[in-house]
Amino acid sequence: MTADLSVYLVTDSGAAARAGHDIVEVVRAAAAGVTAVQIREKDATARGFLDTVRRVSAALPREVAVIVNDRVDVFLAARASGARVDGVHVGQSDLPPAAVRALIGPDAVLGLSASTPEQLAAAAASGVVDYVGIGALHTTATKRDAPPALGHAAFARLVAISALPAVAIGGVTAADLPVLRRSGAAGAAVVSAICAADDPGRAARELRAAWDAA
């Protein structure tokens, strides 16, 4: 399966709650502008994560891809329950991509976080990864183990050598999107720009407009 990753929301229930929002309502509003949603629940129980995946999936139109962060078991359980889930995104310390692909099947989207030339080369050589998430673009507080900030110039150099479509992540705002698109990025992943926004729907539309205008 291929997915449009151009405006890619990664959820943060904590940031949404601090802004006075329920994460499912954030996602429903953001559907006005985003093309994919990755459900990331680092502190949730497996059952709680599964419940969030099912509710988020039900809130999104079919054209918005639903990606599960890290937890292949939650992806499989959601799919077995009848929820629409399109793929999994894993990090360098999670299950190896080949093992993930064997579990999720050939048609699901598989993304992998990468931040070095060596990691990009390994992702491409695996033959099973569909896209890479390169970051952190800027310093970010939404991911405790985020690598050091790359900045636009270093991101562009990594995109240029990546054999796979690349999505930027890490402190990304609407102002970054034109630069990222011109550098060859397949998309931009945002967390706080939508989850912590006063009006998540408007924020998503502004991101969409910024990408489309680049």
Rank of each mutant, 00 (worst) to 15 (best):
P147Q: 11
N69D: 15
V68M: 05
V26C: 10
G111P: 00
R79H: 14
I169A: 03
G111T: 05
W211I: 13
V90Q: 04
G111R: 07
V56S: 11
A46G: 15
L207A: 10
I161R: 03
A31C: 05
L150Y: 10
G171S: 06
L158V: 12
R47H: 12
E206G: 02
V24D: 00
D51C: 01
V26G: 11
A210M: 04
V179W: 13
A156P: 04
A29M: 10
T2Q: 15
V26R: 02
D86V: 12
D22T: 06
P148L: 09
A114V: 05
I104G: 03
V37R: 04
G127A: 01
L76M: 13
P106F: 00
F75I: 08
D212Q: 14
A31S: 11
A146K: 05
D130V: 04
A210H: 06
R47Y: 12
I104H: 00
L207Q: 00
H21Q: 13
A102G: 15
T52Q: 14
G14T: 13
D73R: 03
R205I: 13
A65M: 06
A186N: 02
G151D: 04
L103R: 08
A46K: 06
G201C: 14
A160S: 15
A214C: 09
E118W: 14
D94V: 01
A204V: 12
V167F: 01
A214P: 02
S192R: 15
A29C: 13
R54P: 03
L180F: 02
A46Q: 15
L137Y: 11
S93V: 09
S183R: 10
T140C: 08
P147S: 08
A32C: 08
A175Y: 09
L207R: 01
V159P: 07
V167I: 15
